[in-house]
């Protein structure tokens, strides 16, 4: 039996999409570029020291002085290593992916929580997105959006959005049945029930999903650099291709510092929420 021409089919579909939806891709591209550039320009405009002080202050507000100190020392180290500009580029890429993931993921999660049919469609898609090797998305992403930061963001979002969807769905489904019943018994509309009860109670779970999403998009920065996204990911990739162990370590360390700071910040938002709401 001859091989199924699956590759041809996929290529045909991609070609058809490329020609058919060109204006749409163009608009998406403009939006993403706008967000990335907005964030990057703002952060580049701030002097590194001011940025570090602000980040440390936020760290102190969300956690303790220990976390604030780590944030300050870590970011100063990055600045000292001369990786500041590239780290900011990476941060802009990661934050853009995170924002898009929240905008796409939270409503999809709510949808899957409220309808078993939606969940039935979404879940296998998520499985596919998470297990298909990330490099594979890069190919159509480049076809649709060209080289640069935009396909990097797209690939990151595809790879990173599943936890937000899954944990939003889970958080809402885990709201105790008797509370949902109580909300119904007092004559809430579905909308009131969602905004007054289910989302507030699912918030810790949703935030955990967002935290995971940010971590996953950070892990995509090196891959994204292969298609032209700027940032420390590109430094790592460059060091690999030129076998420069020391430079590779420095750039890798910057990613680690960024990861730890972002992780602790989002986790502490969860904890602060939880304390406030006493869930």
């Amino acid at each position: 039996m001859s091989k199924l021409p699956l590759d041809k089919w996929v290529e045909n579909i991609v070609d058809a999409l490329e020609t058919g939806l060109k204006p749409l891709f163009h608009v998406i591209s403009l939006i993403i570029e706008g967000i990335v550039n907005g964030i990057a320009n703002t952060f580049h405009w701030l002097p590194a020291l001011v940025f570090i002080v602000l980040a440390a202050a936020l760290g102190y507000y969300l956690g303790k002085w220990k976390f604030a100190a780590f944030t300050a020392v870590g970011l100063l180290l990055i600045d000292n290593l001369g990786l500041w500009e590239h780290t900011i580029d990476t941060l802009a890429l990661v934050l853009t992916s995170a924002i898009l993931s929240i905008v796409i993921g939270v409503p999809l999660g709510i949808g899957s929580a409220q309808s078993d049919r939606v969940r039935g469609i979404v879940t296998p898609l998520l499985d596919f997105m998470q297990t298909m090797p990330a490099f594979v998305y890069l190919i159509p992403a480049v076809t649709f959006f060209g080289l640069g930061v935009v396909p990097g963001v797209i690939a990151s979002v595809i790879f990173a959005v599943p936890p937000t969807i899954r944990l939003t769905n889970l958080g809402i489904r885990q709201v105790p049945e008797d509370l949902v019943e109580a909300a119904d018994a007092f004559g809430s509309t579905s909308r009131q029930k969602l905004f007054k009860l289910q989302i507030p109670l699912a918030m810790p779970s949703i935030m955990t999903g967002i935290n995971q999403t940010i971590m996953l998009s950070l892990s995509m920065v090196v891959i994204a650099s292969m298609i032209g996204a700027q940032g420390v990911g590109a430094d790592v990739y460059g060091a690999v291709t030129q076998i420069k162990t020391g430079e590779g370590f420095e750039a890798g360390l910057a990613i680690v510092v960024l990861a730890i700071v972002l992780d602790r910040m989002t986790q502490n938002i969860v904890r602060k929420n939880r304390r406030g709401s006493n869930v």
Partner: peptide, 14 residues
């Protein structure tokens, strides 16, 4: 017209 009181109270914790 109808209100309900629940066995496990069902108060909203937040």
């Amino acid at each position: 017209q109808i209100s309900m009181v629940f066995q496990k109270f069902a108060l909203f914790p937040h």
